[in-house]
């Protein structure tokens, strides 16, 4: 089971422009979702997204770390999550643009333990064979 999301995205724009887009609440609303976000450590905010399976659409956040043009970390807690997960953006100048790294982690406490125990309980094989067939169906 994959317990951490790590995505790299190159953006053809200087880091300060990318920084503005991930910290200004009006801009965040344009690419991510409606929010009252402020890049201030300890600030509590929300994200509002359309409901989808597994979500009522409400996400609570708290800003953990802010280093201008470099690093932004906040917690992320959807309705059913017992413990908050963590979202981390890392910005790095590269060539004529910015290399953005997004990491989303901390799922272990919510699903990980349960699934880990299930996997070791003889269900792993069943699930491993079912997932590829589910994916095939979706294609």
């Amino acid at each position: 089971m994959k317990e951490q999301i790590k995505i790299e995205q190159f953006i053809e724009a200087p880091v300060d422009k990318v920084w503005l887009a991930i910290t200004d609440c009006n801009l965040i609303s344009e690419w991510l979702m409606e929010t009252n976000f402020k890049p201030e450590i300890g600030y509590k905010c929300y994200f509002k997204m359309p409901a989808m399976p597994g979500f009522d659409g409400n996400i609570q956040c708290e800003v953990i770390d802010v280093v201008e043009n470099k690093l932004l970390v906040y917690t992320w807690q959807g309705g059913w999550m017992k413990q908050p997960t963590t979202v981390r953006f890392t910005l790095q100048p590269k060539d004529d643009g910015t290399l953005l790294l997004l990491e989303h982690f901390g799922f272990e406490g919510i699903l990980g333990n349960l699934l880990k125990r299930m996997m070791s309980g003889g269900w792993g094989k069943k699930i491993r064979t079912i997932i590829p067939s589910l994916i095939k169906q979706k294609l």
Binding site: I7, Q9, I11, A13, K17, V18, A21, E30, W31, L32
Partner: peptide, 17 residues
């Protein structure tokens, strides 16, 4: 979900830039 959103971010920032 994040891949889609980061793609939005890229398009938004690059067009504004």
């Amino acid at each position: 979900f994040w891949k889609g959103k980061l793609h939005n971010l890229k398009k938004l920032v690059e067009s504004k830039n």
